[in-house]
Every structure is written in structure tokens, then in C-alpha cells.
Amino acid sequence: MVIFFEVVLPVLLVFLIGFLVQKWRKIKIPAVSEVAIYIMTPCLVFRTFYTAELNLQYFYMVIFSIVLLFALIIINKIYSFIRQYPQSTEGGMILATAFMNTGNYGAPIILFAYGEAGFDYSVSFLVLQAIIMNFFGVYYAARGNAGIKIAMKAVFLMPATYAVIIALLAKGFNVAMPNNLMATVDIIAEATVPTVMIILGMQLALIELRNFEWGKIAYGTVVRLILSPIIAYGITVALPIDPLLTKVLIVSAAMPSAATIVMYAVQFDSEPKLVSSITLMTTLISIVTITLLLTLLQ
């Protein structure tokens, strides 16, 4: 219970604030999201990569992400084949289970649980997952509809991509950033996490609680919250990963479905009701599963 009150509850309360404000004021979420995507997140990403000591651990993070993604995709393909689901349902299942909410849920939890060192790893993993999501997520949502072309465009339209490139170039060529400029970046970066947490609460307020397909939701919930961290644990055992990074990756892999993926499902009509339902249920149930996982890893 200590873990719940000290780590999980503060995060949930911020989500709740966003949820209640959206129910009350009906704020236009895309406008708020654009501020977070185009201004706040790039500053946080730039600061993280510019100040981080890049080493082999980041390479292992990439390997971990790729193996986990394809393991979950294969599981969904096998399950969809056995159940004889159409391609659209298979795509919806992959969207809901292969992509986790490392941004406005995972990063805050890890910050509270493991401090700034863990948070730096979490932000790096967040960027990597965003790139993977923008490519594979868009592909599975828009499969058969120029998916790869749209996915590649999405990756290069993401400001965080350029923030990583600029930070790595500045770091590689030992470019010293002026103190006043870094102070500005710091101020904006510090506002990023609470903002994206509030946005998630606002997004959850828009999900409709009706016409649930409970069998598919149960499957998606088990894969996302239970099977995914188990697979993640197996991958970390096979790689020489730092103990702190191991915890960050396992906890990140146990996060609920990514809220962003709902937008892809809606945009490309890839089972949007199913994807949003799994997103909602995994977010609610993760209150228990994340608490238990943090306790086990402690």
C-alpha cells in the first residue's frame, strides 16, 4: 500500500484532474496536445539526450524495444488466426496491445518510483517508443492504405525526432549551450510531464462506456498488463542491462495501452471502439497491476 500512496496515487490524482476538467469545460484537446507535442516534449527530449551519458545501455534499449514489439505482434497474429478474426480486428488488437503508454503514464510513474536517473531512461524509451508507434502503429492502423508512406511521414513530422538529432549533434561536437537558453529549455521541460498527464485524463473523459466486446477486451488487457511485462523480464534477463534500466523497461512494458493509438484507430477506422475500450480498461486495471509490479521489483 505504501507504493500505491507514494507512487501511483499522485499520478492518478493528476489524471483525475484532467478527467474532471474535461467533463466540466469540454476543452479542445487537440490544441492542448499540440502545445505538448510541438513545444514541451521536444524541450524535455533535448535536455535528456543533451545531458545523458550515452552508452551501451541505450543500444540494449533499442534491442529490447524491437524484440518486445515483434513478440507482441506475433502473439496477436497467432491469436487472431486461431479466432479467425478479420484483418481489421487483428490490426486493432495489435494497436491496443503492442504499444504502451510510456509518455503521459509511464514517465510520471517511473519519476516517482525511481527518481531522475530512472526518469532519464524513461524519456529516452519514450522517444524510441514514439518513433516505433508512429511507424508500426500507423502501418497497422492504415494497412492497405499507403500505411508505410504515411508512417514515414509521421516519424519525420514529429518534433521530438529533430530534438534528438540536434541534441546528439550538439553533444557529439561538444557544443556548449548558453546558460540562459538551457534555463528556458529547463523551464519548459519541467512543465511537460504534468501537462501530458492532464491530457491523458482529458482523453479518457472522451471514451464512451458502451458496446464493450468483453472477450476481446479481456484478451487485450491480459496481453498488455501481464504478458508484456513477463516477456520484458525475459528479454532483460537475456541482455546485460543495468539493474535500474531493467526496472524501467519492465515497468514501462506493463503500462496500459497508449492513448495516442486511439487516434490512429479512429483516423484509419481500425476498430476504434475496441481499441478505445481496451485503452480505458487497461488504464483502470493498471492501478492494481502497476502497484503490484512496483512492489515486486522493489
Rank of each mutant, 00 (worst) to 15 (best):
V7S: 09
V7L: 13
V14D: 03
V21K: 00
Q22K: 07
K23M: 08
I29L: 09
I29R: 10
A31T: 15
A31P: 02
A31D: 14
E34H: 10
A36C: 15
Y38V: 00
T41C: 09
P42F: 01
V45L: 07
R47I: 05
T48C: 13
T51R: 14
A52Q: 12
L54R: 04
L56S: 10
F59P: 03
F64S: 08
F64Y: 14
S65I: 04
S65R: 05
L68Y: 12
I74H: 09
N76A: 00
K77V: 10
Y79W: 15
R83N: 08
Q84A: 05
Y85S: 15
P86W: 07
T89S: 10
A98S: 13
F99C: 11
M100T: 08
N101Y: 06
T102I: 06
G106E: 01
G115W: 06
E116H: 09
G118P: 02
F119N: 12
F119I: 09
V123F: 02
A130W: 05
I131W: 10
I131P: 09
F135Y: 13
G137F: 00
G137M: 07
G137E: 14
R143W: 06
G144V: 07
G144W: 04
A154E: 09
A154S: 10
V155W: 03
F156H: 11
Y162H: 13
I165D: 07
A170V: 01
A170I: 01
K171G: 03
G172Y: 05
V175S: 05
V175A: 15
N179F: 09
N180L: 12
N180W: 14
T192Q: 08
T192E: 10
V196G: 12
V196F: 11
G201V: 13
Q203V: 12
Q203P: 04
I207T: 05
I207M: 02
E213L: 10
E213K: 14
I217H: 09
T221A: 11
I226T: 03
I226V: 14
P229V: 01
G234S: 11
A238F: 07
V248N: 13
L249W: 04
L249S: 01
A253Y: 01
A253M: 02
A258T: 04
I261K: 01
V262A: 10
Y264H: 04
V266G: 03
S270K: 14
S270F: 07
P272L: 11
P272D: 08
K273Y: 06
V275A: 02
L280R: 04
L284N: 11
I287E: 00
I287H: 00
I290P: 00
L292C: 08
L293N: 05
L293E: 03
L293I: 06
L296R: 00
L297C: 07
